[in-house]
Design a protein around this nucleic acid. Structure first.
Lengths: 146, 146
DNA sequence: ATAATCCCCACTATACACATAGGAATAGGA
DNA sequence: TCCTATTCCTATGTGTATAGTGGGGATTAT
């Protein structure tokens, strides 16, 4: 039941962008270096984030990525829907995809699990992660790691 | 973030066993047929469940599988620990496996997500699923599907 | 013009889900 | 007691999705 790297990297990339919002657009190379993730793979995730409207891109020299919205307006649940997809956890929680749908008792448990997970993500905004990251930076003197 | 089939099949297999506890040991073929899952794959999961002490096996003709404990004493969380493993969701929630451990703000969210999921599973026992299954059988007249 | 940057395509590696083949143990009948 | 069908058990092979790599084209500031 691993969380995909898309979600983990995607989240950290957005936090990184939020921490450097004041500057010029941030190139993928900088994010990748700070966040210790493969550039090319990160770029493929940034495409998804752009298509979903989370980030804006500026092409060419001095270009890069920037947040499209205020971090306080972005919940991790929205991100989750894009990067993990609508049938995260199990494929059958939201529709009768399998023969056992009506009589299935395990599905109800997985649905409760999904709801509980998603509630945590709904409660957490990008801004929460950013302020938490700033606290930690102050405590440790480490500018980069998130 | 899909739940593995190990967990899904394993849970349904145990519910199936609980529903046929009164009889002789239940052969894997019967479980597989009722639960519509590949026999050989099911058997590989039953090995894990045997090693973890959830089921007892009887070899040879008239053999099969039976529950080792009362369904009321088995929470889905215990099953989860065996079939999804200790680092379900992400590998780093319980120890400093990565360089970013101390400063990582996303890890805390994944940890809360994990805790929320697991709480749902702690609250649910095999007996809960079994009684729910019996209700549904009565309602639909369907003896087998779970 | 040049360097920096996003963007697209195709390829490789790894893990999980599932299948196949056979071996070992046991119950029950001849 | 021996034979045979039944069953668990182990090991290995195959398909598919995710993770990650690499090359090169399009765009833009300087």
């Amino acid at each position: 039941m691993k969380l995909t790297t898309k979600m983990r990297y995607g989240t950290r990339a957005l936090v990184d962008l939020a921490l450097h919002q004041d500057q010029q657009p941030v190139p993928s190379g900088e994010i990748a270096e700070r966040q210790q993730m493969p550039v090319k793979y990160l770029e493929s995730i940034l495409v998804l984030l752009r298509n979903a409207g989370f980030v804006r891109t500026t092409r060419g020299a001095m270009g890069g990525y920037s947040l499209a919205h205020d971090p306080a307006d972005i919940s991790l649940a929205e991100l989750f829907d894009v990067l993990e997809g609508p049938d995260a956890l199990v494929a059958c929680t939201d529709g009768p995809d399998c023969d056992r749908y009506d009589g299935c008792v395990t599905r109800e448990v997985w649905a409760r699990m999904y709801a509980a997970s998603r509630e945590v993500l709904e409660e957490t905004t990008l801004a929460d992660l950013v302020s938490r990251a700033r606290e930690k930076q102050h405590a440790s003197g480490n500018m980069y790691h998130i």
